[in-house]
Computed example of a mutant assay.
Amino acid sequence: MLMIKAVIRPEKSGEILAELSEAGFPAVTKIDVVGRGKQRGVKVGNVVYDEIPKEMLIMVVDDEHKDDVISIISRKGKTGQAGAFGDGKIFVSPVLEAYTISSGTKGL
């Protein structure tokens, strides 16, 4: 199992979630977050905005579905043909175990 965390532009969230659900990946946790990437925020005049609103999508998938999920998030999260700074990041981490709280069953 793998945990996929994607930090994305808020305006791309609906499109990404719809595509994930349609592809058979409806289980997603969405969190409003703020932060900045390598570009160190946005400078407008003399003001630097270093807490840019983003959304984080978190999901756990079987290893064989990793590429499908990453492809959907990358394709739907990109702005324009080539993308742009601030489109986001995707992080993949191993998950050793998962349990359903209500039943205590192990696995997804």
Rank of each mutant, 00 (worst) to 15 (best):
L2Q: 09
M3K: 06
K5R: 12
A6G: 03
A6M: 04
V7C: 14
V7M: 13
K12H: 06
S13C: 15
S13Q: 15
I16A: 04
E19Y: 09
S21M: 15
S21R: 14
S21P: 05
E22H: 15
G24C: 14
G24V: 14
P26W: 14
A27E: 02
V28S: 08
T29Q: 07
K30L: 12
K30G: 06
K30N: 04
D32F: 02
R36W: 03
Q39A: 09
Q39W: 11
G41K: 03
G41A: 08
V42F: 01
K43C: 03
K43V: 07
G45T: 11
G45P: 05
N46A: 09
V47W: 11
V48N: 14
Y49R: 15
Y49N: 15
D50H: 05
D50L: 03
P53H: 10
P53I: 12
P53D: 05
K54N: 02
L57C: 05
L57Q: 03
M59I: 02
M59N: 01
D62T: 03
D62G: 05
D62K: 05
D63P: 15
D63N: 15
H65W: 12
K66A: 07
K66M: 07
D67G: 14
D67S: 14
V69C: 01
I70Y: 03
I73R: 00
S74I: 12
S74F: 09
G77E: 02
G77L: 00
K78V: 07
T79D: 01
T79A: 00
T79N: 02
Q81L: 13
A84G: 11
F85S: 13
F85Y: 13
G88Q: 04
K89C: 14
K89D: 12
I90M: 07
F91T: 10
F91A: 05
V92T: 04
S93H: 11
P94T: 12
V95A: 13
E97P: 15
T100Q: 09
I101E: 08
G104V: 03
T105L: 04
L108F: 06
